[in-house]
Design a protein around this nucleic acid. Structure first.
Length: 814
RNA sequence: GCCGGGAUGGCGGAAUGGCAGACGCGCGGGACUUAAAAUCCCGUACCGGCAACGGUGUGUGGGUUCGACCCCCACUCCCGGCACCA
């Protein structure tokens, strides 16, 4: 009888349909299981381009992990949904006038079909989309919760305006070079009234709690940098001829005896309020006009300092010295108090400013005794730690002690107050766009805001909308949307027309998955606390600050409000490494190097696609696609297919063959190795070890029971071929994916004889064979010393004999 | 500049104090075939040698250790993030 050939297309579709029909991936009730696990992927934006190789990488990893845990008796929650609001669909609507809901739902259909084709084990009964009213109703509810807690507020602020997408952006959405993360446009500053979430209230907890998370160090560090905690002191200086004192923030009060000037930010409160009293107000006004013309980008890229003297002098509390007060645009209004005290001897920026302003004598306050300056070159600026000089009562102290002492002194005298500053800003959530969750606020005719009653939720996004990029949300003039209950809000009332940043939608979806069809709550406490927090979260490293920080913020708010019993959303986080094109460049239409994973699945089968992506290299590493390497996986699966279709592979009465104990032993080791590798997300080595097992099995025989065990450990990686062989060759009638992970039977692991390497002076010169690691050292020594090659290299003269049981012998010859 | 990660054959990678290069790709040789593809077998870090074997070798320089890809110090380069943050 001819062997059937391995043709994945012949059965993959069949099994995908069967699994769906039997609902084998439906989430069990965690009460019925002893252990629970919540394994989550960052849900995708359903783009029209469909599934990308990067999606497949992350989703396959969580799929293998989930399947392994299920096989080990865990109740696993492993859902999938859609981060469906956002600009691409709306921009497409502006071009074509096709409603975003239509394009989005079409894209979702494509994603679902492609994900099923890939054999991923999601529970589709829990699918959700952030654009659906039954979801954004609760996004709006969360907005109202924050509003009631005083954590959502409206203020006029200088905001980032994207002139291409015609909307404001959060700070996190602006790149360091001043361009928009999404559109690439040069971001402008505009004064607008916008809604903010008060994430800054949570800065300290967001920082501290990072320590308890199993996250990549780089991601934790990225969040720490973003939160940007700095501790120091606000020092208040009296100003000659002014009623208003100037307060500066500094982290280096130890250098304060070296202060020679003060600089105010052009946009600072002090300049705005008191400019008319500046002796040199005309010069300052000219400077402010010039500064306004320089964009943020120019300010940052142009390192040379500019500034203007105000004519004011502040008095240094410590020594009565006069400090000239300048305005300079290297000082940022948003940092500290928007004013700084310049210590040019010990801060490079201050030195550069002093040089630019022609401020000559520079005092040295840290350094060896007798070195009192002045200093004239940048190389002489000493920013580090050292010993205090020229600082009266601080002299001789190290900078750390001096810092504490002078802060005590300043606070005692009432001249200063210790403060902690954060770089983190409140989260701007207003977007002047249509395709997002409407902000549930109604304004009365006087412009005062009123929260919409919960009973009125959701505030529905209408379908009949004209899409135009006007800079104002299309909801502004939509009659149906703007029809509000005048008996409640009065004549002339109108709705907030802005929608929420899509990151609001994605900051709580992991909670909705716990209870996705709840019509009376955003999710029941019972369900959230049963499944949450997420045990394993996998997604791209590009979400280091935005999504991951916002989700942590929401979780802490909900924890504080008593809805959930955990205050961190994601206990363990891993990023999949970026997959580059075969040319080693980022996959991009521009380079024509984009690999479509579905084409790979069509050509080689979904099992090959999955296993290839897992075999490419360490999960979190960046790695390039290699079309030839796919062949290696395809061959491996073909060999498995062929071995299972070869009668002689099995030790049965019919074949008359006996199981090879060495192969059986290898199988037991492989079961253990694959299991531990999956938990450590070392999928590449798990696959290697299965290849090694196949190399051992081919041409030999094992029992059918053991062959089944091999299929079971392969099943999480290659769900289709294992299911097919499980039924057609093994004759099983229930799905392989509902079976238990095989137990490791250590009694079948052979006590192998050990080839013990023998080194002389650190070089392997010979090998001796011993029965086990238990052979006593004395016996080993006799064997080794009788070895002719050892004799040849030692001459029989041994200074030292080192034996590491079962591992190695090293002899130090005299 | 600061922070985080990394550098191992022709290539992807393995080994976390104990035989460097598992596994896969590629390549060379052979078998099967009229032939090719597919498949199978053998070989494959580099240098020398017919071979046995010897020497060298994990970015660079030093150190600890009987023993270092692995730990420590200094440096080079690459990737990612942050950055006039006072």
């Amino acid at each position: 009888m001819a062997q059937p050939k391995y043709i994945p297309a012949a059965f993959e579709q069949k099994w995908a349909e069967q699994w769906e029909k039997d609902q084998i991936y439906k989430t069990p009730d965690p009460k019925s299981a002893e252990k629970k696990a919540y394994v989550l992927d960052m849900f995708p934006y359903p783009s029209g381009a469909g599934l990308h190789v990067g999606h497949v990488e992350g989703y396959t990893a969580t799929d293998i992990y989930s399947r392994y845990l299920r096989m080990n008796g865990y109740a696993v929650l492993h859902p999938m949904g859609w981060d469906a609001f956002g600009l691409p669909a709306e921009n497409y609507a502006i071009k074509t006038n096709v409603h975003p809901e239509i394009t989005t739902n079409n894209a979702i259909k494509t994603f679902i079909a492609q994900i099923k084709r890939t054999g991923l084990s999601y529970d589709w009964s829990r699918e959700l989309g952030t654009h659906r009213a039954d979801y954004y109703k609760w996004t709006q509810w969360l907005f109202l919760l924050l509003y009631k807690k005083g954590l959502a507020y409206r203020k006029e602020a200088l905001v980032n305006w994207d002139p291409v997408d015609q909307t404001v952006l959060a700070n996190e959405q602006v790149l360091p070079d001043g361009t928009a993360e999404r559109s690439g446009a040069k971001v402008e500053q505009r004064m607008l009234t916008q809604w903010f979430f008060k994430i800054t209230d949570y800065a300290e907890r967001l920082l501290q709690d990072l320590d308890k998370l199993d996250w990549p160090e780089s991601t934790k560090q990225g969040q720490r940098n973003w939160i940007g905690k700095s501790t120091g002191i606000n020092i208040t200086y009296q100003v000659d001829g002014m009623d208003a004192p100037i307060t500066v923030f500094t982290t280096r009060p130890d250098t304060n005896f070296g202060a020679t000037f003060i600089v105010l930010a052009p946009e600072s409160e002090y300049v705005r309020s008191h400019i008319e009293s500046f002796p040199k107000k005309d010069e300052v006004k000219i400077y402010l006009e010039q500064a306004k013309l320089r964009t943020e980008l120019e300010r940052i890229s142009n390192k040379s300092k500019t500034g203007v003297f105000t004519g004011l002098y502040a008095i240094n509390n410590l020594n009565g010295k006069k400090l000239p007060v300048y305005v300079g645009d290297f000082v940022l209004a948003t940092v500290g108090t928007g004013a700084l005290v310049g210590v040019p001897g010990h801060d490079m920026r201050d030195f550069e400013f002093a040089q630019a302003m022609g401020l000559p004598v520079i005092r040295v306050v840290i350094g060896p005794d007798g070195d009192t300056g002045p200093i004239t070159t940048a190389e002489q600026v000493q920013e580090g730690e050292g010993t205090m000089v020229n600082s009266e009562f601080l002299d001789g102290m190290d900078t750390i002690a001096a810092k504490e002492k002078i802060m005590d002194y300043l606070e005692e005298k009432g001249w200063g107050k210790r403060v902690t500053n954060y770089r983190l800003r409140d989260w701007l959530i207003s977007r002047q766009r249509f395709w997002g969750a409407p902000i549930p606020i109604v304004y009365d005719k006087d412009g005062k805001d009123h929260p919409v009653d919960q009973a009125e939720l959701p505030v529905i996004l209408p379908m009949d909308v004209e899409f135009k990029p006007t800079g104002v949300s299309p909801l502004k003039d939509h009659a149906g949307f703007q029809a509000v209950d005048t008996t409640k809000y009065g004549e002339g009332a109108y709705r907030e027309a802005d929608t929420m940043d899509t990151f609001v939608d994605s900051s709580w979806y992991f909670l909705r998955f716990c209870d996705p069809h709840n019509e009376t709550e955003f999710a029941s406490r019972e369900a959230m606390n049963k499944w949450g927090p997420v045990d394993l979260y996998v997604g791209g490293a590009e979400h280091t600050v935005l999504h991951l920080l916002y989700a942590r913020f929401f979780t802490k708010v909900l924890f504080d409000e008593g809805y959930i019993t955990f205050d961190e959303p994601f206990l363990k986080l891993r990023h999949q490494g970026t997959i580059l094109g075969p040319d080693n460049r980022k996959m991009s239409k521009r380079y024509g190097n984009v690999i479509n994973p579905l084409e790979v699945a069509d050509q080689f089968g979904a099992d090959t696609l999955r296993m290839y992506e897992m075999f490419m290299g360490p999960f979190s590493d960046m790695k390039a696609w290699n079309t030839q390497n796919i062949q290696g996986i395809y061959r491996f699966l073909t060999r498995i297919w062929n071995v299972f279709h070869t009668e002689a592979s099995f030790a049965t009465a019919a074949t008359g063959r006996d199981a090879d104990p060495a192969v059986v032993s290898r199988l037991q080791k492989t079961i253990a190795k694959v299991g531990s590798d999956i938990l450590e997300m070392k999928f590449n080595t798990a696959i290697s070890s299965m290849m090694e097992f196949m190399n051992a099995w081919e041409g030999k025989a094992i029992s059918r029971e053991d062959a089944q065990k091999f299929l079971l450990i392969l099943a999480p990686f290659a769900p289709f071929i294992t299911e097919e062989l499980w039924h057609t060759v093994m004759g099983q009638t229930t799905s392989i994916h509902t079976q238990r992970w095989p137990e490791v039977d250590t009694s079948k692991i052979l006590a192998e004889t050990i080839e013990l390497p023998v080194q002389v002076n650190g070089k392997v010169r010979s090998k001796i064979t011993i029965e086990s690691a238990d052979v006593p050292e004395e016996e080993i020594r006799k064997l080794v010393m009788a070895d002719p090659r050892v004799l040849q290299f030692t001459g029989g003269k041994v200074a030292k004999f080192i034996y590491v049981p079962g591992r190695i012998v090293n002899i130090i010859a005299k």
